[in-house]
Nucleic acid binder design. Structure first.
Lengths: 198, 198
DNA sequence: CCAGTTTATGAACGAACGTTAATATAAGGA
DNA sequence: TCCTTATATTAACGTTCGTTCATAAACTGG
């Protein structure tokens, strides 16, 4: 996309796309080089191996702070109206997960084993935990302000996040259209809200 | 495993393992041949290409009937005690998804794009729909017998299945131990039951 | 403008890839 | 037993793989 940005970032950008489309073994160094319009040998001026490209890609995405993208000001303003809040929160999450870049990253996480040697890697479990932590924080706040019933925030997070994230996975790996998600969100929040309202 | 079974089945068996561990591009015909202790050329007496092995593998697994494995007699016997029923149903599902063979198949589905040319393929969405259909059937029965509140069975299925299947995915792709799942099931069923009991 | 560093190129390496062909062996029915 | 068919092997094909190397071009600070 942005040709003028530094080459290392550019390589990571196209690698995200290629690894997500063809998996690690299916995307070659030559594919990556072609995508940035250079020869494959020049890649090695920026990364010592294909494996290192992958590692740095995961590292880059695993060390973001997406909190402000989900917990928008608009959202925080309506925390006292939990049902509306849950709807908007769900929309923010689905919108984030379904953004072009995030789809690609999630695809890579889903295709990646935590098998053997790569145990050190960031996995889909770590990814989900970041979102669960965010939503646990939200539920703790809501409970302390008595907006919802007093319940275990871990359970609340799991019950709130799971149907949304699984729908996102189906959206990412399948052919489901995004419009279907509107009613899914509505139904899910309705069900959830009935279980947590005071 | 079973050396004496016919070679075609044997090839599919080891391909399931290899494709799930190293993805489609990472597992070679020579890997597969080595795993059945034959030369790579003899594979082509049974399949016309690597792609065909993959296709038949997906076909084989997508045309099973797992219903009786989930809906056991023991389970059906306690349908009038919904909370107990949900616990056992959850355990059956997690046990099934976490079996060695099923872990491998799910890994393959998760690593597989429904991108472009492969739209025809069975995807994780189809897989999940099979389980949702099963659980919709269960909820319809429960509602008609007035064991639970009258609600949309699609919503019930989604809310019941999602946290369980997502936990299974974490179990399969991550390093989570199976013991953690016991409390997850308990918490999930408790939350769910509180929302659907009459 | 020059020296030093960074980045790009072109060519090559050994290995592995999917697949094919010719041929040998094993199995099964007449 | 012989003939046919199914399955195996060995060898090779053209490609692509990840990576290296010598060298050339581009950039950067003094």
């Amino acid at each position: 996309m942005n040709q003028s940005k530094n080459t290392k970032e550019h390589i990571l950008d196209v690698s995200l796309k290629l690894f997500s489309e063809k998996t690690y073994y299916g995307a070659s160094i030559r594919d990556i080089a072609k995508a940035i319009d250079k020869r494959e040998s020049s890649i090695y001026n920026h990364f010592k191996s294909k494996e290192e490209i992958f590692e740095q890609l995961i590292l880059k995405f695993s060390s973001r702070n997406f909190g402000p993208l989900i917990l928008t000001d608009q959202l925080i303003n309506i925390i006292s109206k939990p049902e509306k809040f849950f709807i908007l929160l769900s929309e923010n999450l689905i919108h984030f997960w379904n953004s072009e870049e995030e789809r690609m990253f999630i695809k890579i996480l889903l295709a990646k084993n935590s098998n053997g040697e790569s145990k050190k890697y960031y996995s889909i479990e770590n990814y989900l935990n970041d979102f669960k932590a965010l939503s646990e924080f939200i539920f703790r706040e809501m409970i302390s302000h008595k907006f919802i019933k007093k319940m275990d925030v871990v359970v609340l997070s799991q019950e709130f996040i799971s149907p949304l994230f699984l729908a996102a996975i189906e959206l990412i790996l399948g052919l489901k259209s995004e419009t279907i998600q509107k009613s899914l969100i509505k139904n899910h929040v309705e069900f959830f809200w009935n279980s947590v309202k005071k």
